[in-house]
Design a protein around this nucleic acid. Structure first.
Lengths: 234, 234, 234, 234
DNA sequence: TATGAATGAGCCTTCATTCAT
DNA sequence: AATGAATGAAGGCTCATTCAT
């Protein structure tokens, strides 16, 4: 489990939890278990720090301290703060992809399948606000880091494909309207969950209501499923 | 239905336009025209810099240089980088509120009114990606600055109220479904536009498609209006 | 009383209170009463600020604000912070000289005369801790400013002369010991009072006793008179 | 009687000498020899700079440069300019206390013992004008830093106790007058030396005489011993 | 004379990064 | 592999001083 998977083949080790598969980053040489552990602690610490303060707002000292590691180790493993950022980002994507792969909708009725996809996105997002934070930051950077990522598998999501399938099935069965653009719907599905989580602080400041309770999230879930299914009605 | 966007008519209300009321309730003393101009240039420069790099990533020197002002003036006018951030944020909200007030939907048929609201949000967001960037950053800060704002009018949006009215009218007329939660719908409306703009860089990296062309935005507009109206069908 | 006395002849207007005789500083041209008042307010404010924080620790803005004057006026009147310092210093000396001239010991018995001189120094010092503070600061500067003062009268004290006279009279009368160096005694007299006041903060921190109550000063007075007179016994 | 000065024997007690115990109760972690050396160089440089220009007038860059150290190290070791000031101040006190402990007067005749105490203070002060400068500055700060010091031993002087003993012995032997307040005498003893050194620049400007030659100091020493012993005559 | 605004140099402090052990 | 110490380049902020009115 402590084994190291080279980044280019990570997708072939499907069941690995993201923290157990550090994906070895830039330097893919065999490393000791101790080094791997240090590396992992740095990544975990960096994820927290980056998600909380962004790339520019994060401090290398803080990350190292949080990781219980020497700052020098951070540089030995990742080369620079920016490389560390990219690695953390890739891992966050990879972690989401990992869970996405576990979402199986093939055998379900179209409406139920669609509901499951919608709910999954909201729930994952709510469970992983750090993913949302990283994504927002990276968009601030105009995706500059992501663009130079070579970790294709991390970026490849099975969801659009699944969505397309469900849409086609539903349309063929006459339970979904025709002419729906899968990409637009995919973006909308992401939006309906992501925005809610990403903006929970300003929204709750303005609305004066707590948005991250289980009750509030449940309500949101009901609403967005209703929106999507309502929209898809023929 | 597409292309229903509010135009910028705000400048006809000079005493309320954000650039005509630069002190925004903070510095209430009479200022010379020259000072006001400097202040304004700093605010404009800060908006650009902050939207591009966030609070932590922005450099005070850079802002001053961009404003063609002395760095000292920034501190004379705003006290600190953080106060400047808050002022910029408030002004960004105020500017949006200003345009929102120009969106009149009372006389329109419910569906058209709803479409106009949805379209306005997307279009405003697309025209003002800096607003999106600021908002995302401020959410990273957990709304710490916004929470301490005293500029209530800047935060108060007329849109939720308008939305509520349209919903009620549509429901009463039997053209909208019943039982729709206005706040949820408001958030969804914001989400469908905001997420698209906010994440255009990562999305286009992953999809390999340009998202900020007029054509793409038009398509998005059609889609989200369709989603909302489709959902609202009784 | 609001009249302006040029610095070089100030000693000829003996009864003028130091704050009423601003001595016109570097630029000795005739000025309006309003200008003189502004100048005076700046000097008063500067004395407080300088005595509290020293030359380096004082802020020109703070002095101007405290004086209720525009900062520009400070420069119009004094040219620079350092010139202002020198002027304040000269005035502090002049003020002390002024009071010293009122100490008359000629008709007194030697012991009483000596006691009066000793007491005067302690009392003046205790009443004017700001003089002590300025002096200490100026010594930190190795008297760099004082050395370039041209205000000779301000520096000339009648006390050493008086002391010399008293000493001679006492020795001649056989009530004082012979061979006392007047300058050394003068310095000692200054020292016994000045040190007590100058170091009251560290001393009271270390001793844990209040040193600036009237009772404490009275006790100090008794002690140093006893020291000097005890020493002078033949 | 003149020339009774304590010599520097403190270095024979290595574990207590201030330069051998650099952490002075503040940073108690074990440090490398290199770090200790850097720390020491910074302290030495700071002492010179602070004594010359005071806290407000000193420049952190200058201190670092003088120490041949990186400015960052100053902060790593001391946290801030103000903390550095306090440390320097404590060390100056500690250094004086150290030498004071070497002044032994128990076996001496009361008059000689007293002369030795008086002379020690003048000589130490003359040899360490930087201590005088620091003290004067700290009094300008109203002992704000000293008051927050936790380095009690640095502040505790054995001299008052010794003085009290000598006084009692002299009085008992009938060679000193009765009723002398030890604290007042202690302050006077400090004053007679300290003031002379502290104000040597303004005094010599006004008197036009050099005060810091060995001859002048010797003369001062003779005088103040004479004053104290003369005063103490029964 | 007086003022508010502006300036540029400089200050204390912090950062990402590297060296030496 | 790991560590503590060191570095130089900013970074935010402030200062004494001057300009324009």
């Amino acid at each position: 489990m402590a084994g190291v998977t080279a980044r280019r083949v990570a997708s072939r080790a499907p069941a690995l939890s993201p923290s157990a598969a550090p994906s070895a980053g830039r330097a893919a040489k065999p490393v000791s278990a101790r080094a791997a552990a240090t590396r992992q602690r740095i990544l975990d610490a960096a994820l927290v720090e980056f998600a909380e303060k962004g790339l520019a707002g994060s401090r290398v000292d803080e990350i190292a301290a949080r990781a219980g590691a020497n700052k020098r180790m951070l540089y030995a493993h990742f080369g620079s703060k920016e490389e560390l950022w990219l690695t953390v980002l890739e891992r966050a994507y990879a972690a989401k992809r990992e869970e996405e792969r576990a979402v199986v909708v093939e055998g379900l009725a179209p409406a139920e399948a669609m509901a499951r996809l919608v709910a999954f996105n909201l729930r994952y997002t709510a469970r992983h606000p750090e993913f949302v934070a990283l994504l927002n930051q990276e968009n601030l950077h105009r995706a500059a880091y992501l663009r130079r990522s070579e970790d294709v598998p991390a970026l490849y999501s099975p969801i659009p494909e699944a969505l397309r399938g469900v849409l086609a099935r539903g349309e063929a069965a006459g339970v979904f309207r025709a002419g729906v653009d899968p990409m637009q719907l995919y973006i909308s599905m992401l939006a309906l969950g992501h925005f809610y989580v990403a903006n929970r602080h300003t929204l709750s400041t303005i609305f004066g209501a707590a948005l991250d309770t289980e009750a509030a999230i449940g309500e949101r879930e009901r609403h967005i499923i209703e929106v999507v299914l309502g929209y898809l009605r023929p």
